[in-house]
Amino acid sequence: MANWNEPRGDRTDFGTTPGSYGEVADNTVMDQGLRKHMLSIYNYMASGVLLTGIVALAAVATGVTQAIFGTGLWFVVALSPLAFVLFMSFGANKFSAGALQVMFWSFATVMGVSMSTIFLQFSADSIAVTFFATAGAFAGLSLWGYTTKKDLSGFGSFLIMGVVGLIIASLLNAFLIGSPGLELAIAAIGVLIFAGLTAYDTQRLKAEYFHFRGTEWAQKSIILGALSLYLDFINMFMFLLRFLGSRE
């Protein structure tokens, strides 16, 4: 996941004028390598989101969600994605790139079953509208994070603290307070926080390319980068669904 000590992405500036033909060639190769690296991350992330959607639809269509929802098995399913994230994030040094790939696809699959309950709570039309709204916002924010010259590294700690605060506030509201107004406020703040994380993580992943290229960590950083952007997208979608979703 996010590593706040990674080198900043502005260590290489493609906008500067090279001093020799050799530098032009080096910058061109580096730029092509960066684009390939980022496209690989986006492809993994998009494939993971697609797999999650297919599994969620299949789980509802086959009655799996209805059968296990509210049972003890459901809590296991609901908590499984968190376990995958923790294993991948903190055990990345021990796992091979192939093992991380298997864990990523397994995570996306389990996440699909876990998210399938949205089809029992919201109308299909509102889910579709929210998904495409999230996709558009995500694309714009990620593009801005990739192209901006502004250093976003200073926002990292603040955004992570915001995520922790969201989790605490959500748990308190769910089990103790139960306020609809607070739920909407949490959703609004959640959308803003994960919008910021989308731009921040994109810039961070761009910087990581220059740090890891040519090492065994290069492929691992692609998978872990896809996991970061996947989580940004899914969380932004879920919080936005609280606003735009029509309850069944």
Rank of each mutant, 00 (worst) to 15 (best):
A67T: 10
F119E: 00
D125S: 10
G72S: 04
V85T: 02
M1T: 05
G112D: 01
G214L: 11
A46C: 06
Y44V: 07
A83H: 01
A108H: 07
T198L: 09
T12N: 10
G22F: 11
S20V: 13
T65L: 07
V129C: 06
L205P: 02
I54H: 06
F122P: 08
N173F: 08
L143R: 11
T147A: 13
P180W: 12
I118R: 00
L176A: 09
S123A: 12
F158Y: 08
E183Y: 13
M45A: 08
L141D: 03
Q203L: 00
K36P: 04
D10S: 04
Y42M: 07
L231Y: 05
I167K: 08
G53K: 12
L205T: 01
N173I: 15
Q121P: 13
G15T: 11
L192G: 11
F104K: 09
R35T: 09
S221V: 01
A58N: 11
T147Q: 14
G48Q: 08
A59C: 13
L227G: 10
I127S: 12
M115D: 05
S246A: 09
S157L: 13
T28H: 11
V85D: 00
T65Q: 07
I68M: 11
M38F: 15
A92H: 05
I186A: 03
A188R: 10
D125A: 09
H211A: 01
T65C: 10
V55W: 02
P18E: 12
A226R: 02
T202A: 07
V85L: 10
G140F: 02
T130C: 14
F243G: 15
T134L: 05
G154W: 02
A199M: 05
G156S: 09
G136S: 07
G33S: 04
S20L: 13
L241W: 13
F87D: 05
S123W: 06
A46E: 05
F175H: 12
M111G: 08
V76E: 14
S123H: 10
E183S: 07
F90R: 01
L172F: 06
S246P: 07
S142G: 10
S116D: 04
W74K: 15
G63M: 12
I160D: 06
R213Y: 03
F90V: 00
Y209V: 12
A187H: 08
F90C: 00
V60R: 15
N5Y: 00
T65M: 09
A83V: 09
P180V: 10
G19H: 15
T62I: 14
R11Q: 08
S246T: 15
H37K: 01
F87T: 07
F75R: 15
A207K: 01
F212W: 04
F132V: 06
P180G: 04
M38V: 14
A226K: 03
K150C: 02
I177L: 09
L39E: 11
R242E: 14
T71I: 00
D13T: 06
T130D: 15
F194Y: 13
I177C: 03
A174F: 03
F132H: 07
D10I: 09
D31E: 03
K150M: 06
P180F: 12
V113Q: 07
I167D: 12
L39K: 10
S126T: 15
F138Y: 03
I68V: 08
F132Y: 11
